[in-house]
Design a protein around this nucleic acid. Sequence first.
RNA 1: GGGCCUGUAGCUCAGCUAGGUAGAGCAUCUGGCUUUUAACCAGGUGGCCAAGGGUUCGAAUCCCUUCAGGCCCGCCA
Length: 515
Amino acid sequence: MHWADVLADELLKEDKKHVLATGITPSGPIHIGNMREVLTTDAVYRSILEKGGDAEFIYISDDIDNLRKVYPYLPKSYEKYVGFPISDIPCPCGSHKSYADHFLFSFLDSLKEIGINPKVYSANEMYKSGMYKDAIQIALDNTEKIKNIIEKISKRKLPKNWIPFNIRCDKCGKLTDAKAVLYEYPNIEYTCDCGYEGVVDIRKGGAGKLPWRVDWPARWKMLSVTFEPFGKDHGTTGGSRETGEVIVQEIYNYPAPKYAVYEFIMLKGKGAMHSSKGTALSSEEMLKMTPPEVLRFLIIRNQPNKHIMFDPGLGVLNLVDEYDQQERVYFEKKEEIKGMKDLKKNYELSQPYKIPKKIPFQLPYRHLVTLAQISKKWQDIKKILLRTGQIPMNLEDSDDEHLKQRVEHAQYWLDNFAPDMVKFEVKKKLPKMKLKIDEKKFLKGLLDIIDYIKWDAEAIHNGIYEVSEKQKIPIKTAFSSIYQILLGQEKGPRAGFFLSNLDKEFVIKRIKEAI
RNA sequence: GGGCCUGUAGCUCAGCUAGGUAGAGCAUCUGGCUUUUAACCAGGUGGCCAAGGGUUCGAAUCCCUUCAGGCCCGCCA
């Protein structure tokens, strides 16, 4: 059984509406781990619906969290905002409402592309609207109990005057520097490092926030959360999950949600991703280089508690090939291979939107990678495909869209991640190079017969061999001469296939120029 | 110190949430075509499933122990 079904069945033991929650602090480019969190939840969500259950998928943006430091991708001028809630900081690009929205919105766009549309909550707005009012009061009334729970489970020592509330200083606006002096419902007297002494009314929105270890359980109750996956860092002993479980039951009188701990996604050769170490890959970037259904496939096919090794180099090609292969099996164009576990479910959950009724038109991805380097525009690539008979004249719109999208992903990958060995550029002008006598001789021979060659991959291929044999020129020399005059390099994509995709007149002209 | 994950063919991994004769891709070898680049097709070689113990008629699969590696343990998933 697929892991998503296992989790769904577990939840469905309780016959009620299930609220599946995800969340993230949008303090920088949102990385691929959040993609896993969201996709894990989406898989469970879909499985519940498929089984006839009732469920809602929510996404909470922790946009009231404070900016911790000036990250490398921020201008120095952001120094003055450290300690501010990220929803109160100006947007770096100027076109969003706030710093938080800047990063959140681009992630939400990516989610749309992979077929995920959760109900989005803003923690900041929840606080401002007064939704947290009761939760804050309960927390403050139970300060000692909560403190004990956290100290006992996490083995951390909290300061003497600790209270489960981070006050936002009225004067300097920071969430991090105010210390409570006295709490007497509904007011907290505080002093701030900036020198200000003031009073906040906890019933008022914007007075401050609950610290994470308390906020999380409070939110479970407030939104009736029944399931929320989290990364392994939260799952560790003494982590926020453990304290949260006790706090939600003992303080908020609500059962702890079910969960799944998910492992990290590693970049091949670099280990786990960390924004601070520069090994992070943003969700947006990952999605730009990997077709959406393939990215879903990568995450869906792996159990959440297994780490995923992602190879942004040639691994991407293998992954797409593997996806296509499973697609052929799903539509019974190919026999199932032993070990293809949960193939049907994996394929279905990999679809961003509707599951296709019949198999989408497939072109080997590696061919697309070659074509994407011959022409940049999809319309031009399509012309080549039509001329060479690689796609039918009456290609369906959905297939057209699908291939176009794949070409775009291949292009992004080529521009940013592909290793040099697969890259080439058809030079507009004859590259500067010196051909050897043998190479010129071969090209002359090729020119003699080129008019008679049918312009398809196999005929060209055979033609090259024919000339090479007749002239007694090593085949290696023959191939390299072709690549040199067109690409300015010694090697290139399969010659027959490659040339057939180029315009014949263009090739003839280039050979004439070269000899 | 604690938590989680991993250890299956030379390499990367499936299979372990249905316990019932060990699977795939790459590499290698053979043949099809003197067919460059990670080309294609057919077939072959290749594994004491980390080690030990237990449960069972039967264990890669469940349980326990050990060893080795990875990641996480101040809200960076």
